[in-house]
Design a binder for these strands. Structure first.
Lengths: 230, 230
DNA sequence: TGTATACAAATTGTATACGAAAAACAACTT
DNA sequence: AAGTTGTTTTTCGTATACAATTTGTATACA
């Protein structure tokens, strides 16, 4: 869901879709800074389309929690606040552990094999271009993981939540080279699922989420970006 | 969030907003049956606007999980499946108990007083028109309750989830006269929050959600609507 | 100087027209 | 009768033009 025009999984190339992806990426990679003001006209110029596809893209980004519309003033890139980061991570913990609890009992060996293939994803430290790609694949991994819960609505919610958090994750990546660390975290999770070890799966994902949160908070404290404290 | 054009809480009347609300209500009250096919043109005619606001409305309803778009075929009202009902209720249990857990420790006496005012909402048995209004106010109550958690993202998720479940709730209402029962359930919850009794708050809401689920499943078994079994 | 008012500018909201892509259908071939 | 091809119809996607609404500004007046 929230994936635009789809034909049973195949995505049609539409201008609105392109604008959505491009704009989203630019927000996530902080090319558009939190608080920045963007008008439809401006965006239409920037991304080479008319205002109609821009409107559609902005509408979706509003639901993604990345943009806010102020009538007759324009769109504004949502601020990143410590509160919001905390809220999101609390929810991520709640929902992702729940998903894995279900997955541990419902996933087949086949499912897990398929998952292994995309667990192996890394990025190149200091290569900003690779960050965005990594974030996409990392998101896909977590979504596939969630899909093992066999609860479609849960997957949709997690997709939205994690999608909205990509911007946070981006902050954490440049802080240090965690590429291989994160990769082995992925593989460890799949391994534990293979062993049908629900308790350890839960505590494992819990630790991973905590360390992800810590990475990001450390990046913020390192003054990598100025942000409102509440 | 997900509330269309807003000026600090005040909602502007826009055609797209009207179409969204009207169409949503018609889907929730089953005026558009699950599986029904709707084209943009058709909807524009039905709701007296051009296709542009219809597109926007349908886009939002897709994210709400009420519509699906099949390119070049039209929009289709999503089916109601037992699986989906189960999934949604599982999530509701998880998220709403979590929200109340937070609320129990974070809500002020003032918050609770304000909540009491909207807890008292009923519907008139067999008066279908009153059902939709009741569902709206009931949703508002649960959202306000969730807001006491002070986790804005959680509120947004619950708004989407419960919003998408309105159609299920609708089914349950006509099964019997639960108006006063639901009202006292609301009041009981607020009462327990007042007493700062977290454990009982949780078990209370758990019971209420269970009985809500049972009502709906009973309505379905009573063959009130034909639906796919998986 | 302060305030009210009228006007101009900026921005979004909506309708409409046109084009592209897919689906539905019919005619044709084998 | 089945499959294939070509045409028509349907439906969506996009650009553009215009209307509605708000904001900001300048001006007149007290």
């Amino acid at each position: 869901m929230a994936e635009g025009a789809t034909i049973t999984g195949v995505q049609r190339r539409t201008v609105a879709e392109d604008v959505y992806n491009a704009l989203k990426r630019d927000i996530i990679t902080l090319r558009h800074r939190p608080g920045a003001s963007l008008t439809e006209q401006e965006l239409a110029g920037l991304y080479g389309s008319s205002r109609v596809p821009v409107r559609e893209a902005c509408g979706r980004l509003q639901q993604d929690g990345l943009l806010t519309n102020q009538p007759f003033k324009g769109y504004f890139v949502n601020q990143i606040s410590l509160n919001e980061i905390g809220d999101c991570f609390d929810l991520r913990l709640l929902l992702e552990t729940y998903a894995l609890e279900l997955a541990a009992s419902r996933a087949t060996t086949d499912d897990l094999s398929r998952l292994e293939e995309i667990a192996a994803t890394e990025y190149t430290y200091h290569d900003w271009e690779s960050y965005a790609d990594f974030l996409d694949r990392n998101l896909e991994f977590h979504i596939r993981l969630a899909e093992l819960s066999r609860n479609g609505r849960l997957v949709a919610i997690l997709r939205d939540l994690l999608g909205g958090m990509q911007r946070f994750f981006f902050l954490g990546l440049d802080l240090g080279d965690f590429a291989s660390e994160m990769r082995s975290e992925h593989e460890q999770l799949v391994e534990l699922l293979h062993r049908r070890d629900p308790d350890n799966v839960i505590s494992c994902v819990r630790n991973q989420i905590q360390s992800s949160r810590d990475r990001i908070l450390r990046a913020l404290i390192d003054d990598r970006i100025e942000l409102p404290l509440r």
